[in-house]
């Protein structure tokens, strides 16, 4: 209902609550469509397996940052309608993370389950990447309205798991990097800002009590 009321107010701007969900959905799937398009047009470079695995991992991380940016943008910039896309962003992030894992299993390991298990046990950056993926699963399973109602207060606590999960994802990125840390450092700085906002809000609340 509020969509209709708000849409008049914002109809001339890009920030149109009615359009925001489909727009974000399409925008978030563009990188994947681009990857598929390039796959059919020899556009994945000299080592396509590497391009696919890295690109999917990059986008899982970017969309994770978008997800974490929703609340600060709502509260600070007043973009309240963004709450409509938070769950969708989280699910698309999980979708990219799943494809990232699938690409590793197929193009890097070619379904050699023995080697995959060894990799997960032996190699810290893969251990961490895999653990990150596993920890996302309960969040996905409890992302429905029904689960939200059923879990009540515990739902929020459970979904605050995304903070340590996001740290793990960034450390995974650091640990796979060979020498040039510029990109992971940028990601880490943005994540620090997003998490610092939560800490700030938390301590402010503590003070007011």
């Amino acid at each position: 209902m509020d969509t209709v009321i708000n849409s008049n107010k914002y109809s001339s701007s890009l920030y149109n609550p009615a359009l925001i969900k489909p727009a974000v959905f399409i925008l978030c799937l563009l990188p994947l469509m681009n990857l598929v398009w390039n796959g059919f047009n020899q556009g994945l470079g000299v080592n396509p397996a590497e391009t696919i695995i890295r690109t999917l991992g990059d986008w899982a991380l970017y969309i994770l940052l978008f997800t974490l940016a929703v609340t600060p943008l709502r509260k600070i910039a007043g973009l309240t309608a963004l709450i409509r896309v938070r769950r969708m962003l989280g699910l698309i992030m999980f979708f990219y993370a799943s494809l990232h894992l699938l690409a590793y299993v197929w193009f890097d390991q070619y379904f050699d389950w023995n080697e995959i298990v060894k990799d997960i046990i032996k190699r810290p950056f893969i251990t961490l990447g895999f653990a990150t993926f596993i920890l996302l699963i309960p969040l996905v399973l409890t992302s429905t309205n029904k689960m939200m109602k059923r879990l009540k207060r515990r739902w929020k606590t459970l979904h605050q798991m995304i903070y340590p999960i996001s740290l793990m994802a960034v450390v995974h990125y650091f640990w796979m990097t060979r020498a040039d840390f510029r990109q992971p450092v940028i990601i880490a700085i943005i994540l620090s800002g997003l998490l610092a906002y939560r800490l700030f809000v938390y301590f402010k609340k503590q003070q007011s009590i």
């Binding site: 000299v46 397996a49 590497e50 190699r123």
Partner: peptide, 11 residues
């Protein structure tokens, strides 16, 4: 330490 050297991707 970070990856297996058992196999290789032939470019």
């Amino acid at each position: 330490p970070r990856w297996s050297q058992k196999t290789e991707r032939k470019i």
